[in-house]
């Protein structure tokens, strides 16, 4: 094994990502959710339901998800859970935009890394273009859930 491949793999499958894959946070349905959506990439089989409970001012008070998929999609969802509670829809949208930029933008600078916070561990996904959709899926699902009229099914394929 040449170091190059191993380095790339270590960048992709960082410890934190593997930990979230194994022990996803808020991995449950929120029974009294008032916003939700379904993210599904039929070609690769990633398939998640996202549940949000927003308060009257629109702040996300509780978030949960269920479903199945690869390590990248699941850890992306799990880390999202730790970030969006307490955020307004506008703040969550802003984080989503920054994260999508981290995955697909032409370049990544320190300002962007600072903006996405702990999501910066997904920067390694940039080296695996076919896996970008995995990391992005739950965030597009969030985008849909935050709309007043969710389309109920989202895909990043």
């Amino acid at each position: 094994m040449i170091p190059g491949g191993e380095v790339k793999l270590n960048d992709l499958y960082q410890e934190v990502i593997l930990d979230h894959n194994k022990r996803p946070r808020n991995f449950k349905k929120i029974e009294d959710a008032n916003a939700s959506s379904h993210g599904k990439n039929p070609l690769c089989g990633d398939d998640y339901y996202l549940y949000l409970k927003k308060d009257t001012s629109g702040v996300i008070r509780e978030a949960g998800f269920t479903g199945q998929g690869c390590a990248i999609s699941k850890s992306s969802a799990s880390i999202m859970m730790t970030l969006i509670e307490g955020k307004s829809a506008v703040e969550a949208e802003k984080l989503k935009d920054a994260f999508i930029k981290l995955l697909t933008g032409d370049s990544v600078d320190e300002a962007l890394r600072a903006e996405v916070g702990k999501l910066k561990i997904f920067e390694g996904v940039r080296q695996f273009p076919v896996r970008v959709k995995c990391a992005a899926l739950i965030w597009r699902t969030l985008e849909d859930a935050l709309k007043n009229n969710s389309t109920q099914e989202v895909s990043t394929e």
């Binding site: 793999l9 992709l12 499958y13 690769c44 089989g45 998929g69 690869c70 390590a71 990248i72 695996f128 896996r131 995995c134």
Partner: peptide, 8 residues
């Protein structure tokens, strides 16, 4: 997941 297997 098979996609993680394939990537590695």
């Amino acid at each position: 997941h098979p996609h993680d297997v394939g990537t590695v």
